[in-house]
C-alpha cells in the first residue's frame, strides 16, 4: 500500500505547481489582475460610488468628471459603478460555467479513459461532435433554446466548454492508467471506483486546474458576447456585454460608454490568460 502512495505522490501536485508559478512574473501579474477583479466583485457595494441601476435624468450621457470618473450612460447611471458591479456578472458567469464544464466533463473523461471499450467510443464520438461545432455558435444556440438570462447563458457556456474537459481528462487517464501505482492498486484487489477516486483523480486535478483558468477567460468573453447579443444578463442589472450593446448606439456622442466596459473585459480576460499561460508553463516545466 505504501508503494502505491509513494508512486502516486511523484505525479505533479497542485502545491508544487503553485511553487513553480511564483517564479513566473507574467503569471503573477495575471494573478494580481484576477484578484483585483475578485476584490471589486466581492466589495462592489462598498466600493461603487453610486447605485448601478439608479437613473438620473439630470446627468444623462455626461463625460468623465470629478463626480463621475467614467462618465454616465444614456439613463444617467454612473459608468464606474456599473463597471464595478459588472465584474460580479462576469466572474459569476465564468465560475459557474467552468464548474458546470468540470462537473460534467471530469466524470465523463474519467469513465471514458479508464474503462475504454464501447463506453469510451460513445463518449469520445459525442465529444468530437460537440467539438466540431464552433464554441460561440454552440453557446448562442443553446442560450437561445434555453431562453435569454444570465443563468441560462452560464449553462450554455458550461455545456459548450464541457467537451474540452472530457478530452483533456480522458487523455490524462490514458497516460496514467497503466502506471505502476495503478497496477499495484489493482493487484491489491482495489475496485475500479476507489482506484479512480484515490489514484487517478489526484493526478488529473492539476491539468484540470490549468485548463479551468484558461477556460475562465473564454467563458468570460463568451458571457460578454452573449450579453452583447441580448442573450445574457438582462438590463438594468450591470453586465459589461450588455453595457457595450447599449453603448453602440451612442458611439458618436458618448464614446466613454463603450471604452470602460470594454477595457474591463480586456483586462480581466488578459489576467486569466496570463495566469493560465503561466500555470501551463509551470505544469510543463521540467523538475
Amino acid at each position: 500500500m505504501s508503494t502505491v502512495a509513494e508512486t502516486a505522490q511523484k505525479s505533479p501536485s497542485t502545491r508544487s505547481l503553485a511553487a513553480r508559478l511564483i517564479r513566473q512574473r507574467s503569471a503573477l501579474i495575471g494573478l494580481v489582475i484576477v484578484l483585483f477583479f475578485v476584490f471589486l466583485a466581492l466589495f462592489a457595494p462598498l466600493i461603487a460610488p453610486y447605485d448601478p441601476v439608479a437613473s438620473d435624468w439630470l446627468t444623462v450621457r455626461q463625460p468623465p468628471s470629478a463626480a463621475h470618473w467614467m462618465g454616465t450612460d444614456d439613463l444617467g447611471r454612473d459608468v464606474l459603478s456599473r463597471v464595478i458591479y459588472g465584474s460580479q456578472a462576469s466572474l459569476l458567469a465564468g465560475t459557474i460555467a467552468v464548474s458546470i464544464a468540470i462537473l460534467a466533463g471530469l466524470p465523463l473523461g474519467l469513465i471514458a479513459g479508464y474503462f475504454g471499450g464501447w463506453i469510451d467510443t460513445v463518449i469520445s464520438r459525442c465529444t468530437d461532435a460537440l467539438l466540431a461545432c464552433p464554441f460561440l455558435v454552440l453557446a448562442i444556440a443553446l442560450a437561445a433554446f434555453l431562453g435569454a438570462s444570465l443563468q441560462n447563458a452560464m449553462i450554455a457556456i458550461g455545456i459548450s466548454a464541457m467537451p474540452i474537459f472530457i478530452r483533456l481528462v480522458r487523455g490524462q487517464v490514458l497516460s496514467i492508467k497503466n502506471e505502476d501505482f495503478v497496477t499495484a492498486a489493482r493487484g491489491q484487489g482495489m475496485r475500479d471506483g476507489p482506484i479512480i477516486v484515490s489514484h487517478i483523480l489526484p493526478n488529473v486535478v492539476t491539468p484540470v486546474v490549468v485548463q479551468a483558468t484558461i477556460t475562465m477567460a473564454v467563458a468570460i468573453l463568451a458571457e460578454a458576447s452573449l450579453a452583447f447579443l441580448g442573450l445574457g444578463q438582462k438590463p438594468p442589472a450591470a453586465s459589461w456585454g450588455s453595457m457595450l450593446d447599449v453603448a453602440r448606439q451612442f458611439m458618436t456622442n458618448a464614446p466613454w460608454m463603450s471604452i470602460w466596459p470594454g477595457l474591463a473585459i480586456v483586462t480581466i480576460v488578459l489576467g486569466f490568460n496570463l495566469l493560465g499561460d503561466g500555470l501551463n508553463d509551470a505544469l510543463n516545466e521540467k523538475d
Binding site: 477567460a217 468573453l221 460578454a224 458576447s225 452583447f228 456585454g241 457595450l244 453603448a247 453602440r248 458611439m251 463603450s258 471604452i259 466596459p261 470594454g262 473585459i265 480586456v266 483586462t267 480576460v269 488578459l270 490568460n273 496570463l274 499561460d277
Partner: peptide, 15 residues
C-alpha cells in the same frame, strides 16, 4: 499576442 486574444471582437469593432 495575449492581449490580442483577450480583446472581445465586438468591442474592438466598436473602437
Amino acid at each position: 499576442g495575449l492581449a490580442g486574444l483577450s480583446i472581445p471582437s465586438f468591442w474592438f469593432g466598436i473602437i
